[in-house]
Design a protein around this nucleic acid. Structure first.
Length: 524
RNA sequence: GGCGCAGUAGCCAAGUGGCCUAAGGCGACGGAUUGCAAAUCCGUUAUUCCCCGGUUCGAAUCCGGGCUGCGCCUCCA
């Protein structure tokens, strides 16, 4: 089976065919850097990082761009409010964004262009649009003329007429059409401004993506991604501008990810505004869940708490990544601490398996050499036929899921199946007691395959905090002593004392497990 | 008002015309193992996919109509 991708433009899954054979160009709309990143900002990058991983594994040479919007009304207002320079605020928030991406294991992005580095190119494109009769200057602004674009609205399925009928398009009498949008905005006193043929001003929101995508990836690109909320107006306008300027198809596959929501009725995370009065105000007497509180913090109109402090303080980022990918990217995803906790629990079994692997083979599973090309998968020849067939089948099912519009939810399920198969092997062969070189080779092949597939969704890339032992010499010494005493009690069949020690340690969040090969402990 | 998306077990979630008498996870219950636990493995946990009609030899999957939740139409990823 070959890769199929859902295309928002056609509302269908289509066979994946690139513009240039073997190459993929991919652009994702990045954040406006005016406040710390919230969890919702991580969804797109994690998903498209996974898309790139999978495409790369499948043999494509992928170029992936995420833009940084560092000029914008919200940014200007926020800077004013805080009494800092726009540039300084943008730099600080960009850094926060990068930190979070890094924690989430998003590390496949090739370019992070800044809007302010492309002002000249934007002006060129605007001029081109004016020359071609698709835009018109007006009192220091420049507007895109939607009526001059025959297929305007094709992405979001709206017609210009329908939008006219909508009552909420703010009337700007001077514009030819209320749906016309700004390409260039004349600046007011004290705002960042660049000289232009139309007077000092700054670019409109949509033009930067058209320009940067064209400059870095060419006029036609394979994949353009973003949150569902960006489909209109942002992507619709980008599309209109780009195609009107170049005369070429702008994007082959439009991919839109579902938005993160929090709690049952709280709406999407990060949706800061109040509705405008036609829906009842949120019931303030409703029990405030912790999740909603966190979501509100993340949305952060008041508090500006970042993902780092709000979530990663309590959960390893890998948990969040795994959580995001355990559902389909086009579905909305419910963020809640309960869900995160469940995910954390489900991941524990993998970490235990890796610990167990290291005990048995003496090899750190994170140092294994992992194949990263589809055709060069790990060899299963050391396994007996039945096992080899079973693992090959699991791998196929994993890849089939991913081939089906990047169905990470289905694929992740296979990882659990594989975990169970490996644990079963360890148990049947009693590897915790003794392990021959042949068995070690077999086990290594299985775990390598698990990691080969896991890398495609970007998990198990680097060790999380050690789940057993500690690196504090003093603590280790103390634990050795305590456990030695407990072992003595067990040998004497003094279960009262042995259990008392175990229970007391548990109170201190130290988990003691008696295995065949000896006692283990870990801090919760 | 207009345009979209979604509704699968206690919870999360995959499956979108026949391999579905519906993956996987969390939870629960039973068994193996254990001094007892923990971990691990095995088994059980939806005859049914929001409701009502229709198309079809056959539908969770397609169509029509409801109900419910959500998003966009306002420079939110």
């Amino acid at each position: 089976m070959s890769l199929r991708v859902y295309n928002t433009l056609t509302r269908e899954k289509e066979p994946f065919k690139t513009i240039e054979p073997g190459k993929v160009t991919m652009y994702l709309c990045g954040p406006t850097v005016y406040k710390p990143a919230h969890i919702g900002h991580m969804v797109g990058p994690v998903i498209f990082d996974t898309v790139k991983r999978y495409l790369t594994y499948s043999g494509y040479d992928v170029t992936f761009v995420i833009n940084i919007t560092d000029v914008d009304d919200k940014l200007i207002n926020k800077a004013k409010e805080l009494g800092v320079e726009v540039k300084a605020l943008a730099e600080q928030m960009t850094e926060d964004y990068f930190d979070n991406l890094n924690l989430m294991g998003v590390n496949t992005i090739d370019h992070f262009p800044y809007a302010t580095d492309y002002i000249n190119d934007m002006q060129e494109m605007i001029q081109k649009l004016i020359d071609r009769g698709h835009a018109y200057p007006l009192n220091g602004d420049v507007y895109f003329d939607v009526t001059a674009d025959a297929d305007y609205g094709k992405l979001s399925g709206r017609s210009v007429d329908a939008m006219m009928a909508g009552t909420r398009v703010e009337a700007n009498d001077a514009k030819k059409n209320p749906a016309d949008f700004a390409l260039w905005k004349g600046s007011k006193e004290g705002e960042p401004a660049w000289d232009s043929p139309w007077g000092p001003g700054r670019p409109g929101w949509h033009i930067e993506c058209s320009v940067m995508s064209c400059k870095l990836l060419g006029p036609s690109i394979d994949i353009h991604g973003g949150g569902l909320d960006l489909m209109f107006p942002h992507h619709e306008n980008e599309l209109a501008q780009s195609e009107s300027a170049s005369g070429e198809t702008f994007v082959r596959y439009w991919m839109h990810n579902g938005l993160m929501q929090s709690g049952k009725n709280t709406g999407k995370v990060g949706g800061g505004h109040d509705r405008h009065g036609d829906s009842p105000a949120p019931d303030s007497t409703a029990p405030d869940s912790t999740d909603a509180q966190i979501a509100n913090k993340l949305a952060g109109s008041a508090g500006a708490e970042s993902v780092k402090t709000a979530v990663f303080a309590h959960h390893h980022p890998e948990v969040v990544r795994f959580f995001l990918l355990s559902t389909h990217y086009r579905s909305p995803i419910d963020f809640s601490l309960e869900n995160i906790a469940k995910t954390e629990k489900s991941l524990d079994g993998f970490y235990r398996l890796f610990d167990s692997f290291e005990r048995i083979t003496g090899v750190d599973p994170y140092t294994l050499n992992i194949p990263n090309v589809r055709e060069e998968t790990v060899s299963l020849s050391s396994l007996d036929d039945e096992l080899a067939a079973n693992f090959a089948d699991l791998r196929n099912r994993f890849l089939e899921s991913m081939d089906d519009d990047f169905n990470t939810g289905g694929a992740v399920g296979i990882l659990f199946d594989m975990r169970r198969a490996i644990n079963g092997f360890i148990q049947q062969q009693k590897l915790e007691e003794s392990c021959s070189p042949e068995q070690s080779e077999q086990l290594t092949a299985m775990v390598t395959l698990l990691r080969e597939l896991a890398q495609l969704v970007g998990v198990f890339q680097r060790p999380v905090e050690k789940s057993s032992g500690a690196d504090d010499e003093f603590v280790n010494g103390l634990m050795d002593l305590v456990l030695d005493i407990r072992q003595q009690a067990r040998t004497d069949k003094n279960w009262t004392v042995a259990d008392k020690i175990r229970d007391a340690l548990k109170e201190l969040n130290v988990e003691v497990e008696d295995g065949k090969e000896g006692v283990r402990w870990s801090r919760g």
